[in-house]
Lab assay of single mutants.
Amino acid sequence: NKFNKEMRNAYWEILLLPNLNEQQKRAFIRSLYDDPSQSANLLAEAKKLNDAQA
């Protein structure tokens, strides 16, 4: 399933972002589970926040 693969990839990438705190990571991951079809958008948002907090 395409969404499962995308979601899994986004999950691990979000977990490994160094500048997000645990609460932020949990919020993004919760959103991933709520709507896996938004994986790419959520990952992009997480990366943007990660860069902003660098």
Results as ranks from 00 to 15, higher is better:
Leu49Gln: 02
Asn19Asp: 09
Leu43Trp: 03
Leu16Lys: 15
Leu43Lys: 09
Arg8Asn: 06
Asn21Gly: 09
Tyr11His: 09
Phe28Glu: 00
Glu22Asp: 14
Asp34Gln: 10
Asn21Gln: 13
Leu43Gln: 08
Ser31Arg: 10
Ser37Tyr: 12
Asn41Glu: 07
Leu16Ser: 06
Glu22Lys: 06
Ala27Asn: 14
Ser31His: 13
Asn1Arg: 01
Trp12Pro: 01
Ser37His: 04
Trp12Leu: 08
Ala27Glu: 04
Asn1Thr: 04
Glu6Gln: 04
Leu16Phe: 13
Lys2Val: 06
Ala10Gln: 02
Ser31Val: 10
Asn41Met: 08
Glu13Asn: 13
Gln24Val: 08
Leu49Lys: 13
Asn9Leu: 05
Leu17Asp: 01
Pro18Ser: 08
Gln53Glu: 13
Lys5Pro: 13
Lys47Tyr: 09
Arg30Gly: 09
Lys47Pro: 00
Leu20Ala: 01
Asn21His: 12
Glu22Pro: 09
Asn21Tyr: 15
Asp51Tyr: 12
Asn41Ile: 07
Glu13His: 12
Leu32Ser: 01
Trp12Met: 06
Asn4Thr: 03
Gln38Tyr: 09
Arg26Thr: 10
Asn4Pro: 09
Arg30Gln: 08
Gln24Phe: 04
Arg8Tyr: 08
Leu17Met: 11
Asp35Ile: 09
Phe28Thr: 03
Tyr11Ser: 04
Trp12Ser: 14
Leu17Pro: 00
Leu43Glu: 03
Ser37Arg: 11
Ala27Lys: 10
Leu16Gln: 11
Leu42Ser: 07
Gln38Gly: 09
Ile14Leu: 07
Ala40Ile: 06
Glu45Ser: 11
Ser31Met: 10
Pro18Ala: 08
Met7Lys: 01
Leu15Ala: 07
Glu22Val: 06
Asn1Phe: 01
Pro18Gln: 11
Ser37Pro: 04
Tyr33Val: 06
Ser37Ile: 11
Asn4Ile: 06
Met7Val: 07
Pro36Asp: 03
Lys48Phe: 14
Gln38Asn: 08
Arg8Ala: 11
Ser39Gln: 04
Phe28Ser: 03
Ala40Asn: 09
Ile29Ser: 03
Gln53Asn: 09
Leu16Trp: 14
Leu20Thr: 00
Gln23Tyr: 11
Ala44Asn: 14
Glu22Arg: 06
Pro18Tyr: 05
Phe28Pro: 00
Gln23Gly: 11
Asn41Trp: 10
Leu20Pro: 00
Glu6Thr: 03
Lys25Ile: 05
Asn50Ala: 09
Asn9Tyr: 14
Asp34Ala: 09
Asn4Gln: 04
Trp12Gln: 12
Ser37Glu: 09
Lys5Gly: 03
Asp51Arg: 10
Phe28Tyr: 10
Tyr11Pro: 01
Asn1Asp: 15
Lys47Gly: 05
Asn41Val: 06
Ala52Tyr: 15
Gln23Ser: 15
